[in-house]
Write a protein that binds this DNA or RNA. Structure first.
Lengths: 290, 290
DNA sequence: AGCATTGTCTGACTTTAGTCAGATACAATG
DNA sequence: CATTGTATCTGACTAAAGTCAGACAATGCT
């Protein structure tokens, strides 16, 4: 009843019935669930037939029939892939887009009503983020993004907000050496965002300089994604990016108010060095040779 | 991507595939899901056929056939209900108990592996409790329990622990006027536990005295279940219990370090009165005439 | 060019889930 | 004791999901 396993299982039961309710609402549009799922997968940008099939785990025969039934309804069109005529690419027709939008509205409405029913919506959302990150930890994708992209800017905002909370004196980005976006773009550098499904949950910047080394900047992991080893993965990815850019020496600065960061650097081959810049915030400096 | 609705939907997707995986693992025992669900419902103590049918939402014809197939497998036996021969009662055979235990092991193993994969298991469990409570808020059952039952004692332990955290001077139950269990049993009083599925998430005690009034004691709501109006429901239930016991006057004491409690009393017809006991912890005293 | 491989489609099939209209046996009621 | 109601069961049906073996065309490889 009260042990951890029971609590997980209670959660499973609660969530199973909630998920079942969403499935049921999807049936309200007069189409079997299988066809609805294919339509939605296509609507969400999975145009390649084999991609949809893998995503939904369908047999190729079944997949083909579901496509046919959606075609008969006039909701999708398929054509051969331009590079490989064996592969087929599906797209929504005008009617298909309308139908997809109707499913989106259903999903959004049920999500909104869940939030509206709940007084402590922010706590609920934080709990959902945490669980979703834990469940999809094997599917966290590290992707190179432009440092000015929505995803990157979301991460940076969250990162600055967290520094503001953790530094006694707060954090004002204009006082810090804010790296120029172009220093974190290839070929000078790189910016990597960790995506869990559609949510950015971590980032790291590799900032090129003219001093014979590159800097690691803006390493951030969302609170909901801590404990998954994501910081290490981001760091490894940034080091790989540095190697592809023929960068042999990395430096970074950090603050002793972020002990978990210092710990990570010390255990992954970084060496503490004297201060190498005049940024007012950091008080710890590291270097690593690749 | 980052708005509340997207976060809920990301959670839904993450959880759908995790839950789907559990269903799939249940298929590994060579039995359709429907039959497995019936077997598990019976294993969990739902012996009455109509009870299982309601719980699983099955048509009576389908239910009958699933029972038959489990009987053919030698996993269950059915017999007429002893008070009403129309109703049937199902029970597991020896082989059925083994099979049920195997399903339990599957569920437990997957729950354990989820926890084991995760460094921050306690945070994950807290998030799961919160979400499960929010999703099942319409199914929270208030049930009278013996104050010495496992469920009641779990609630009281949690209650004392919370007081210890919230009182500056801590909380030592031996210094407080700990109500005797028999004062919170009928006919002198009552003890009510709020159950969400199998988890106790709140409690309240009605303690009989010999002074012409009864006291409300040990009103507690689990952190994961706050914001659902559960405190008010527990209080209403305790007042109802008092009425059935012909108690006309209620008193309670509380502490100003628990502002949400004082707020609840003030808005539900309680009147502040002078101190009526010498317990060292409370500093606020209320009375309500029924 | 010849041959194996790949991606999709078709037809024939099975299993699972679910519906619905009686049939049957028992219980409650006046 | 007849009537009405209730719980379950049976038979006949449908829809949906899934499986499997081959067909077919395009592609890749030697």
């Amino acid at each position: 009843m009260l042990d951890p396993v029971s609590r997980v299982r209670r959660f499973n039961r609660a969530v199973t019935s909630a998920v079942g309710a969403l499935d049921t609402s999807f049936l309200g549009r007069g189409r079997p669930l299988g066809a609805a799922r294919v339509l939605n997968a296509i609507g969400h940008g999975r145009s390649d037939v084999s991609e949809v099939r893998d995503y939904l785990g369908l047999d190729s025969g079944l997949m083909s029939r579901l496509l046919r039934s959606l075609e008969d309804e006039g909701l999708i069109e398929t054509q051969a892939h331009e590079d490989d005529a064996r592969r087929r690419v599906a797209s929504l027709t005008r009617a298909g887009k309308r139908e997809f939008a109707a499913y989106e509205t259903l999903s959004n409405t049920q999500a909104e009503s869940l939030l509206a029913r709940n007084a402590q919506a922010e706590a609920l959302l934080a709990a959902m983020d945490l669980i979703a990150s834990a469940l999809t930890r094997d599917r966290i994708a590290l992707t190179e993004r432009d440092p000015r992209s929505d995803e990157a800017r979301y991460c940076l905002r969250e990162y600055y907000a967290e520094l503001g909370r953790r530094f006694k004196q707060g954090f004002d980005v204009s006082l810090s050496r804010d790296p120029d976006a172009k220093d974190m773009r290839r070929p000078r550098g790189s910016f990597i965002v960790a995506m869990s499904d559609t949510l950015p949950i971590g980032c790291i910047g590799l900032k090129g300089t003219d001093h014979g080394y590159a800097e690691i900047k803006r390493l951030w992991v969302a609170p909901s994604a801590r404990g998954l080893g994501l910081g290490k993965r981001l760091m490894d990815e940034a080091e790989d990016a540095a190697r592809t850019l023929d960068i042999a020496l990395l430096r970074l600065d950090t603050n002793s108010a972020l002990p978990e960061a210092g710990q990570l650097y010390r255990t992954t081959g970084w060496r503490e060095i004297p201060r190498f810049n005049d940024d007012p915030y950091p008080d710890l400096f590291f270097e690593k040779r690749l």
